[in-house]
């Protein structure tokens, strides 16, 4: 059956066999995966930026994601599972988005010339999406694979050491710029693509969406830069003890993964 379909398609008779639903489903899948990833990145940024509230806050959230408050013990593999799901979604979205990339140098040259002649903001924003998306193929994959394989290496000191002592801060800085620009443009384009939040005056609706888009970009960019600066500062302060882990006593029920010799501070969490 599959061979028959390949033969029909290969001969160029697939349109005669009825119009495929696939283009519609792929378009929907691209939109939904983009939406989920953009919303995930909002949540991710809020969780990561908890470091701005203090090491304890970030530590508490880290432990929550490791299931400590449900199981009474930390299971970093839970983080790995979540990262694996995000990685699959990320690859799925990237694959779908590739369909819209210029497929030859000639196409790239043509659309680049079109952009420079037209000087049209939404066309220029699409280029930002393409460039940041391309950058994320590498930057995002690197980050996700590190998190997938080292899920226990998340915490006030572990993350800061990775950022500073591990020399990852330039990667995270570029990733931050790429993600925040790409994600907010993606949400804006999704809204105009499907006609969401148009209101009674679609032109005014689009203007408002664009203002909101830049507001969201600015907010998350600022939050991200402050967060990265916080991790860098902790990383610098902690450089002499790089490799030690932040650790609190959680009512005498310490997670297995945390060496007691690395105890730096002790905070009693509310029951």
């Amino acid at each position: 059956m599959k061979d028959n379909r390949s033969l029909i398609t290969g001969i160029g008779l697939d349109q005669c066999a009825g119009k495929s639903r696939l283009p519609a489903l792929l378009d929907l899948a691209q939109s939904l995966s983009g939406l989920l990833l953009a919303l995930f990145m909002w949540g991710h940024m809020f969780f990561v930026s908890s470091i701005l509230l203090g090491k304890e806050a970030m530590y508490t959230i880290t432990k929550a994601f490791e299931g400590y408050y449900i199981f009474g013990t930390s299971y970093p593999w839970i983080v790995s599972v979540a990262v694996f799901c995000v990685l699959i979604l990320f690859m799925f979205h990237a694959g779908l988005a590739l369909r819209k990339f210029p497929s030859s140098y000639q196409q790239y040259k043509t659309i680049l010339a079109h952009k420079s002649i037209l000087k049209h903001s939404d066309t220029s924003l699409w280029f930002v999406q393409v460039y940041t998306g391309f950058a994320m193929f590498f930057l995002g994959s690197a980050h996700l694979i590190i998190m997938l394989t080292h899920p226990a290496e998340i915490g006030p000191y572990a993350s800061s050491d990775r950022v500073w002592d591990g020399g990852m801060w330039p990667i995270y800085l570029l990733l931050l710029l790429a993600v925040e620009l790409h994600g907010s443009i993606d949400l804006y384009r999704l809204a105009v693509k499907w006609g969401w939040f148009q209101g009674s005056d679609p032109d005014a609706g689009r203007r408002h969406l664009k203002i909101a888009k830049w507001g969201i970009t600015g907010f998350f960019m600022l939050l991200g830069l402050l967060t990265l600066a916080a991790y860098i500062k902790i990383g610098i302060d902690h450089q002499a003890n790089a490799g030690e882990r932040y650790h609190v006593s959680l009512q005498g029920n310490l997670p297995d993964q945390m060496p007691t010799s690395a105890t730096v501070t002790t905070v009693r969490l509310p029951s």
Partner: peptide
């Protein structure tokens, strides 16, 4: 228009 040469090919650049 139900394909990538039609409405699903539009990249919503809105030029």
């Amino acid at each position: 228009v139900g394909d990538d040469d039609g409405v699903f090919g539009c990249m919503t650049l809105l030029g």
